[in-house]
Simulated assay, not measured.
Amino acid sequence: MKYMLLVCGDDTADASDMAPVEPWVEELSVRRGVRLHGHRLRPPADAVTVRVRGGEVLRSDGPFAETKEYVAGFDILECDSLEEAVEAAVKHPVAALGAMEVRAFWDDEDAEGEIRRLDAELTTAGRERDFDRAMACYAPDVEVFHPVSGLEQRGIDALRKAEEVWFSTLSGPVEREVLEFQVRVDESIAFSHALVRIRATPVSGDALDTTARVTTGYRLTGDRWLIVHQHTSVPFDTGVPGAMGV
């Protein structure tokens, strides 16, 4: 489960002897893999507070409330339990001077499931030769390294054209079998790594059967996950005995 740590500073506290935050970030991010990301915030004096009352926009410089405590930054953790998140908060240097508010995210979304369903759409679209269905999985500004042309295709129109050229060399559907699929999801960005077996029949009559490594980047757009980057690597003969490159 994901947890938000709100790092609350205190204007009245003496922070001159506070331990550096970098070791805490290193421990949770690199060694334990618990901290997904986080960032400092500008001080309350730089804040702008906006209210709308009766259709009128009321804007004021400064924080929402005048208080000695303020949110100085945030960290997003992925922990097995609330106790693990609290343990991480206790070790944050600011906890000794201010406060750490630990709050769980609403657990009502299945981002990984949505991404897996999106990948399944690509499989179905290839089998049915449905370009519209396939292109609906991609963002308008997608960047794809296309395995056929060997070039980067930028934008949905360029990708569609490359796909149409590829399918024109095939006499039937494309069977796409995902052998391995690993997903890493953040709040609005996700990545997947997969081994994908592609089988098809070219118009020449020869059989096409190859396995590719596909790395895909996703972005949450509104309430939908879309593919914004995709790199497909296929094996080729390097000419060196016993060696295979991609």
Rank of each mutant, 00 (worst) to 15 (best):
S192W: 03
T232Y: 06
I115W: 04
E56L: 13
A136Y: 02
A111Y: 02
D75A: 09
E143S: 10
D75S: 05
D186Y: 09
E180H: 13
R154N: 10
E26V: 15
F236M: 09
G113H: 04
S233W: 02
T215Q: 14
Y138P: 02
R213F: 06
D107V: 15
S29Q: 10
E112W: 04
P43S: 14
S233G: 09
R213P: 00
E27R: 06
D14C: 09
E180K: 10
L179Q: 13
R197S: 06
T216H: 02
R154G: 05
R184L: 11
K161A: 04
E152K: 12
V185Y: 02
G239R: 01
D186M: 14
D110R: 03
V142C: 06
I227T: 02
V142Q: 03
D237H: 08
V30D: 14
E112P: 03
S60R: 13
T216W: 03
R219Y: 09
G205Q: 08
P202G: 11
D75P: 00
L226N: 04
E163Y: 06
S204G: 13
L6T: 01
F131V: 15
D141P: 02
E78I: 07
H92F: 12
R154E: 13
T124H: 09
C8A: 10
G113R: 07
G38H: 00
G73Y: 02
T49I: 13
R184P: 03
L118M: 06
Q153E: 10
Q230E: 15
